[in-house]
Design a protein around this nucleic acid. Structure first.
Lengths: 200, 200, 200, 200
DNA sequence: TATGAATGAGACTTCATTCAT
DNA sequence: CATGAATGAAGTCTCATTCAT
C-alpha cells in the first residue's frame, strides 16, 4: 500500500503520486501532462487540468505531498536530539536515512526544487532554519564564529547533493547509515568552535 | 571584444555566446533556438542547426566554452598554491572570486549542469579531482580520515550553491572576497585532521 | 427576488438568468457552461446538461426569457400609441427607455442575436413586423414610398446599435429619454411621405 | 486572379485570404487555425503561428487587407461626389455596390467587426467620420438639427446590416443598385433639414 | 554560408457532454 | 435532482529540425 497523507485523497492524490513518479524517473523537464496522465492511468490530460488549476498547482501539490512524507519521517528524529550539535547531526542523518524509504520522492523533490524558479518556500524555509539554528548555537557557544548564512547555504545544498546521489542508486541500509554518519561528522567538524585543536 | 577561446571561431562561437547569455538571463528551460537566434542576431534558427548537430551539441559547446573561460581564470591561482590545503583554499576562493568577472557564464554553467541529466563530464571531472585531491592529502596526513567521495560531493555542490547565489546578485568585490574566505575556512575546517594538525 | 416569467421555474430559470448575466458581462464567446454554472452557484456543469438539451437549447431559452421581459415592458407602450407613425415612435422610444431597466438583458440579447448564425426567429419576427407595419402604413398614406424591407432592416439594426451602445454604458434617465426621442425623430423623418406632410 | 494589395505577399497573404474565406463561410466563431490552415492548403497550424504573432495578429491583418480592398473601391467614388449630401449618398451606394465584387470580404469584415471586442479602430474611425461629416454639414446648413452621434451610429450600423444581408445572398447587379439608391434616399431623407429643403 | 519556409510533434488548456452514484 | 468525475476533441502556441534556394 502506498503512503497517503491526509491532505490528498482520491484521484487528486493519484495524480500527485503519478507526477512524483514521472519526475523522479524522467526528470522535471520531461514531466509533461501526457506522461503524468499515462502514469496515472488517465485517458487524457484534461483530467489533470480538471483537478489542478495548472501545472504550477500540480507541482506545488507534489512538493507539499513530499514534504509531508519527509517531515513525518525526519521531524521526530530531529526533535529527539538534544542540543544544537546533536540536532544538526540528527537532521543530516535522518535526511540520508530517508533515502532508504522514499528514494523516489526525494529524487523528485530535489528535481522540483532545482527547477523551482522562484516558488521555493520550502528551500528558503530550510535555509532560514539552518541559519537561525547556527546563530543560536553560536550564541550558546557550541558553534564557531563562521558566517551563518553562507554556511547554511553550503551545507544544505551539499546535503541535497549527497541525498540525490544516494537516491539515484540506493545503497544498502548499512552503507546509507555510514554515509549519513560521515556527512554529519563532516558538518559537525565544519561548524565546531575553534578552541584548541586548530591546526595550520 | 569578447574573449574567444581557440576551440570556437566565427559564427559558431557567436552562437555559443548567445546561448550562454540566454541561459543566464532566461534560464535553461526558456533557452530555445528561437531565443538564441534572436540574441545572436540571426534571422533564423536554421543556422544553429547548421552549425550544431543538435541541441545537446550546442549545450555541450556552451559548457566547454565556459569551462575554458573559468579554467583560464582559476587554474593559475590553483597552481600558485602550494600544498593540499592551500590548493583547496585557492580553488574555493578563485571560484567565488570568478563571480566578479564572469557572473553570466557562471549562472549559465550552473543552470546547464543542473539540467544535465547524465552527460556531465565536467562535474564528474571536478568531483573526481576533489576526491583524488582528498585522498592524496589524506595519505600525506594533511586531511582527516573522512570519506573522500562523500566529502568531495558535498563540498563541490555546496560551493556551486554559494557561487550561484552570489552570481544571481553580484555583491561588491570586497564582499565577494570575504565570502570566498569564509567558505574556504569552512572547508578547511571540515577537512582538517582530528587532533594534532599536521601541516604541510 | 428577480422577476420570473411564467415559462420558466426553479433551477431551469436560475440557469437561464445566470447565463444571461454571464453573456452580458463576459460576452457570448466566453459564456461557457463552466462560467454559467459558477454564476448560478452550481458546483457542476452537469446540471445544465440535465436541464437543457444542449447549448443551443439554453441559448434559445435565454432569448425567450429576455423577449418576455422586454415584451412585457414594450408591448403596452406600443399598444397605447395610435396610428402607424406614433407606434413606430413608441417602439423606438420604448426600446431605448428599456435600457434603464434591463440593460443586462439587452446587452445579452444583442450579443445572442449577433452570434445567432441562422436560428434568429426573434429578429426575423421583428423585421417582418416592421416591414408589415411599413407596408400598411404606406397603404394608409402615412409613410413614404420607400422599400419596406430594406428600410425595416436598416432601421431595426440601427436601433439595436443605439440600444447596445446605451446599454454598455447606461446614461442618466433624462439622457436616455432624449436619445429615444432623437432616434424616433430620425426614423419618423426617414419614413415620412415626400411632400405634403400626411397627418394621422 | 485574386486581388492582392501591396501590403501582403506570399504565404502571409495566402493565409490572410484563407482566413477571410473561412470567416465568410463558417463564421468568426468557427474560424480556427485548423480550418484556416486546411483552407490555405497548409499541413499544420504551426505555419500560421510562424507567420503571425497570434490569432489577434491574423485577424487584424484580415481587417487591414479587407479595408484596403474596400477603400480602393469606395474612396474614388466618395471623392468624386461634391457636397455633404452627395458624399453621404456616394458612401452608401458605393458600399452596397461593393457587395457585387467583394461579397466574401464584406461578410468576413462585418463578422470580424461584430466580434472585435475592443480593437475596432476601423469602425470607430468610420463612426467618427460620419459624425464629423454630419456636424460640418449641419454647420453648412445642408443637414438638419439632429444629434450627430446618435444618427451616425444608427445609420452606419443600419448600412452594415443591409450590406451583410445582401452579401449573404448576392442579388443581381441591377437590384444591388436599386438597394443602394433606396438606402441612400432613406438616409438623405433622415438627415435633411426640417422645412424648406435646401439642396446643395 | 545563410535564409526563410515548412513540418510534425507535443505542450497546456478549455470545452460540451455523459454517467455512476 | 444533484454531484463530481471522466472523456475526447479541439483550441492556440512553441519547439527542434529539415530543406530548397
Amino acid at each position: 500500500m502506498r503512503a497517503r497523507t491526509f491532505t490528498e485523497s482520491g484521484r487528486r492524490a493519484q495524480i500527485v503520486r503519478a507526477a512524483i513518479a514521472v519526475i523522479a524517473e524522467a526528470g522535471y523537464a520531461k514531466a509533461s501532462f501526457s506522461r503524468i496522465a499515462k502514469q496515472a492511468g488517465l485517458s487524457s490530460t484534461g483530467m489533470i487540468s480538471y483537478h489542478f488549476a495548472g501545472k504550477d498547482d500540480l507541482l506545488k501539490a507534489c512538493v507539499t505531498e513530499i514534504e509531508e512524507i519527509t517531515g513525518a519521517f525526519m521531524q521526530p528524529r530531529i526533535d529527539a536530539a538534544v542540543g544544537h550539535v546533536a540536532q544538526l547531526r540528527a537532521f543530516v542523518e535522518a535526511n540520508v536515512e530517508l533515502v532508504g524509504e522514499h528514494a523516489t520522492e526525494l529524487r523528485a523533490l530535489i528535481d522540483l526544487v532545482k527547477n523551482a524558479g522562484s516558488r521555493s518556500d520550502a528551500v528558503d524555509g530550510r535555509l532560514a532554519l539552518f541559519e537561525e539554528h547556527f546563530r543560536t548555537g553560536q550564541a550558546a557557544g557550541v558553534f564557531g564564529a563562521f558566517d551563518a548564512r553562507i554556511t547554511a547555504l553550503a551545507l544544505t545544498t551539499g546535503l541535497d547533493a549527497v541525498v540525490a546521489t544516494a537516491a539515484a542508486n540506493v545503497p544498502e541500509p548499512a552503507e546509507l547509515t555510514r554515509i549519513g554518519r560521515e556527512l554529519a561528522d563532516l558538518y559537525v567538524r565544519a561548524t565546531a568552535p575553534e578552541s584548541t585543536g586548530g591546526p595550520e
